Measured scan of single mutants.
Amino acid sequence: DVEEQIRRLEEVLKKNQPVTWNGTTYTDPNEIKKVIEELRKSM
């Protein structure tokens, strides 16, 4: 579920933690925001 994935990513973003997405680890909050944007567009 895309909305659930977005929620999880936003939680990680709030905690300022790195997130691994599709085999890539993002540590930059701006990169994580881009991933969230892409997910929103795909909905």
Rank of each mutant, 00 (worst) to 15 (best):
Q17H: 09
E3S: 09
G23N: 04
D28C: 04
E11I: 07
E4Q: 10
K15A: 12
G23P: 02
V2T: 10
I36K: 00
L9A: 02
K41F: 10
T25W: 11
L9M: 10
R8A: 13
L9Q: 00
D28I: 03
K41Y: 10
E4L: 09
R7H: 07
E3I: 13
I36L: 10
Q5N: 06
M43E: 04
K15N: 14
P18H: 09
E38S: 11
D28Y: 03
Y26L: 14
N16D: 06
I32Y: 01
P18Q: 10
V19K: 01
R40V: 05
Y26R: 00
I32C: 01
V35L: 15
R8P: 01
E11W: 04
K34V: 07
T20L: 13
V35E: 02
E31L: 08
T20S: 13
T27Y: 11
T24V: 15
K14T: 11
M43K: 05
R7T: 06
R40K: 11
N22W: 09
I6L: 07
D1F: 12
T27S: 10
N16V: 04
E37T: 07
M43V: 10
I32H: 00
K34P: 02
L13M: 12
E11V: 05
D28S: 07
I36N: 00
E4C: 07
Y26C: 01
G23R: 00
K15M: 14
R7L: 10
D1S: 13
L13E: 02
G23I: 00
Y26Q: 01
N22M: 12
D1L: 12
N22I: 02
D1W: 15
R40Y: 12
R40P: 00
T25V: 14
K15E: 10
M43Q: 11
L13T: 03
Q17T: 09
E11A: 09
L39N: 00
E31T: 05
T27W: 09
E11F: 04
E37M: 11
Q17Y: 14
E11G: 05
R8Y: 15
Q5F: 14
V35W: 04
V35S: 01
G23A: 02
I6Y: 02
K33E: 09
D28L: 04
Q5H: 09
Q17S: 07
Q17R: 07
T24P: 00
S42Q: 14
E10P: 00
V12H: 15
L39S: 00
N30T: 11
V2P: 07
E11C: 12
N16T: 04
L9P: 00
T27F: 08
T24A: 08
E10I: 09
E11S: 08
E37Y: 06
P18L: 05
S42F: 14
L9D: 00
E10S: 06
V2A: 08
I36Q: 01
K14D: 09
I36R: 00
I32T: 02
T20Q: 14
P29G: 05
K41S: 11
K41C: 05
E37P: 00
M43N: 07
V12Y: 15
Q5K: 05
T20H: 14
E37V: 07
I6S: 01
E38Q: 13
T27H: 08
L39D: 00
R7Q: 08
I6R: 01
Y26A: 00
V35A: 04
T25H: 05
R8T: 12
L13K: 02
P29L: 06
T20M: 13
N22L: 11
T20C: 13
K15Q: 13
I6F: 03
E37C: 07
V12C: 15
I32D: 00
I6C: 01
L9E: 00
R7V: 05
E4F: 12
L39F: 03
N30I: 13
K33N: 05
K14R: 14
V12F: 15
T24L: 11
W21P: 02
D28E: 08
E38F: 14
T24G: 03
K33D: 03
S42T: 14
N16E: 07
G23C: 06
N30Y: 12
G23Y: 02
K34S: 08
K15G: 08
T24Q: 14
S42K: 12
E11Q: 08
L13C: 05
R7M: 09
I6T: 01
T24D: 06
R8F: 15
N16Q: 09
I6K: 01
G23M: 01
P29E: 06
N30G: 11
K33H: 06
M43T: 07
Q5C: 10
L39M: 06
K33L: 13
N16G: 15
Q5D: 11
N16I: 03
I36V: 06
W21R: 02
T25C: 10
E37G: 05
L13Q: 03
E31G: 03
G23L: 01
R8C: 12
N22T: 02
R8N: 10
E31I: 06
V2L: 13
Y26G: 00
I6N: 01
Q5T: 14
E3P: 08
N22S: 03
E4D: 11
T24N: 08
R8H: 13
T27Q: 05
E3D: 07
K15R: 12
L39H: 01
E10L: 12
T25Q: 05
Y26S: 01
P18S: 12
K14F: 12
E11R: 06
Q17G: 10
N30C: 10
Y26N: 00
R40A: 03
K41W: 10
T27M: 06
K14M: 14
N16R: 09
P18V: 10
K15D: 08
E11L: 09
V2Y: 08
N22H: 07
R7K: 09
R8L: 14
N22E: 14
T25I: 12
L39A: 02
N22Q: 13
V12M: 15
V12R: 14
D1E: 13
T20Y: 15
K33A: 12
N30V: 13
P18M: 09
L9I: 07
K34N: 08
T27K: 06
N16L: 05
Q5R: 04
I36F: 03
V35D: 01
E31R: 02
L9W: 03
E38R: 09
N22P: 02
I36M: 04
Y26K: 00
L9C: 02
W21T: 03
E4K: 08
E31W: 03
V12G: 15
P29M: 13
K14S: 14
V19A: 09
W21D: 01
W21M: 10
I32F: 07
L39R: 01
K33W: 12
K14H: 12
L39G: 00
E4R: 08
V12I: 13
Q17F: 15
P18F: 05
D1R: 08
I32A: 04
N16S: 08
K34T: 07
V12A: 15
K14L: 15
R7S: 07
E11M: 09
I32S: 01
V35K: 04
Q17L: 15
K41H: 12
M43S: 05
V2I: 15
K15T: 15
E37I: 08
T27L: 05
T24F: 11
Y26E: 01
W21F: 13
N30H: 12
Q17I: 14
E3W: 15
D28R: 03
V12T: 13
E3T: 08
N22G: 12
W21K: 02
R40W: 07
S42V: 12
K41G: 08
G23Q: 02
K41N: 12
G23K: 01
E37L: 10
K14V: 10
Y26V: 04
W21C: 05
L39Q: 01
N22D: 09
N30L: 13
K33F: 09
T25F: 12
E38W: 15
P18T: 13
S42W: 13
D1N: 13
Q17C: 09
G23V: 00
E3F: 13
K14A: 14
K34I: 07
W21H: 11
V19D: 03
E11T: 07
D1A: 12
P18R: 04
L13I: 11
R40Q: 06
I6A: 02
R8I: 15
V19T: 04
K15I: 08
K33Y: 12
E31D: 13
L13N: 02
K15L: 15
E37N: 08
V19Q: 02
V35I: 15
V2S: 04
I6P: 00
Q17V: 11
M43H: 06
I36C: 01
S42P: 04
D1I: 11
E10A: 04
T20N: 14
I6D: 01
I32K: 00
N30P: 03
T25G: 02
L39E: 01
R7Y: 05
L13W: 07
E38K: 08
T20P: 02
R40G: 02
R7G: 04
K34L: 11
K15Y: 14
E4H: 08
L9F: 09
V19F: 13
M43L: 15
V2K: 06
E3K: 10
N30A: 14
E10K: 05
P29Q: 06
V19W: 15
E3L: 14
E38T: 11
D28T: 09
V12D: 12
E31Q: 08
I6H: 01
L39P: 00
E38Y: 15
G23T: 01
R40D: 01
V2C: 07
R40M: 08
K34G: 06
V2W: 11
K33I: 12
N30E: 14
